[in-house]
C-alpha cells in the first residue's frame, strides 16, 4: 500500500556527535533527495520531505541506534533504499537497517549507553538514595531526582554501561549523570533502544 511507511535505522558516530538534531534533519533531507528515494512530501505552502525521528540525540553523544521514519510514494525495496541512502551519506552516518516499522516511537522506554572514560570519575553519587540533577526548563532551573529513572549502572573492562529511562517525559541524559560523577572527558555511545517492556525497539 502506498504511501508506505519505512523505518531507517542509522548510526551517528565520531565527529557527528557535534551535529545538532536540526542539522541532522537537514542532512537527512538532502541525502534522501540525492539518493532518489521517492519520499512523501508534506503538503502545504512549503512542501518538504516528511521525516520523523525517534529520540533526539544530545550534542556530544554518539549513537548506533538512531531511527527515522519516512513514507515512500513509489515501490522501492528496503535493500535498495538502504543501498542508495548509504551511498548518499558518509560512513559515520551509515544506514544499519531499513524495514517496515513494527512499533511506535511512543513505545520507547529505555536506552542503553556505553561510556568510555578518559579521565578520573567516581560513580558513587549514582548509588545514593537521591540522584538530583538540575534541569533547565522554561520556568528556570529545576532540580529533579532521577533515581527511579536509572535502571542500572555497571562497569566492565574499563567501560561504564548504563540503562536509562528514555521516554519523553522521563528522559535522562547520561551526560548529566557523568557530570555528577565528576567525569570530565569521556565518550558516550547510545547502543540500543528498548520499549517500556524492555523489548528491543524495532
Amino acid at each position: 500500500m502506498l504511501p508506505q511507511s519505512v523505518r531507517i535505522k542509522f548510526q551517528k558516530i565520531n565527529v557527528l556527535k557535534f551535529i545538532s538534531h536540526l542539522d541532522l534533519c537537514r542532512t537527512m533531507k538532502t541525502a534522501l533527495l540525492r539518493a532518489g528515494i521517492p519520499v512523501w512530501y508534506t503538503e502545504g505552502f512549503n512542501p518538504h520531505p516528511k521525516m520523523v525521528f525517534s529520540l533526539p540525540l544530545s550534542i556530544g553523544t554518539e549513537s548506533e541506534c538512531e531511527y527515522m521514519d519516512i513514507k515512500i510514494t513509489e515501490e522501492m525495496s528496503f535493500d535498495e533504499i538502504k543501498q542508495r541512502l548509504s551511498d548518499a551519506l558518509t560512513a559515520d552516518m551509515a544506514i544499519l537497517d531499513v524495514y517496515a516499522p513494527e512499533m511506535k516511537f511512543q513505545e520507547i522506554g529505555y536506552a542503553t549507553y556505553e561510556i568510555t572514560p578518559y579521565a578520573s570519575y567516581d560513580l558513587s553519587p549514582l548509588s545514593k538514595d537521591e540522584v538530583n540533577i538540575t534541569k533547565r526548563t522554561k520556568k528556570g532551573e529545576a532540580t529533579v531526582n532521577v533515581k527511579d529513572r536509572i535502571v542500572s549502572v555497571s562497569e566492565n573492562e574499563g567501560k561504564i554501561y548504563m540503562i536509562l529511562s528514555a521516554d519523553t517525559e522521563r528522559f535522562v541524559n547520561p551526560e548529566h549523570l557523568l557530570a555528577l560523577c565528576k567525569s570530565e572527558d569521556h565518550r558516550i555511545v547510545r547502543k540500543e533502544v528498548y520499549t517500556r517492556n524492555m523489548k528491543i525497539f524495532r
Partner: peptide
C-alpha cells in the same frame, strides 16, 4: 558551533 571544525562532510 563545533560543527565548523569537524570536516568529514559528504
Amino acid at each position: 558551533k563545533p560543527g565548523r571544525y569537524i570536516g568529514g562532510e559528504y
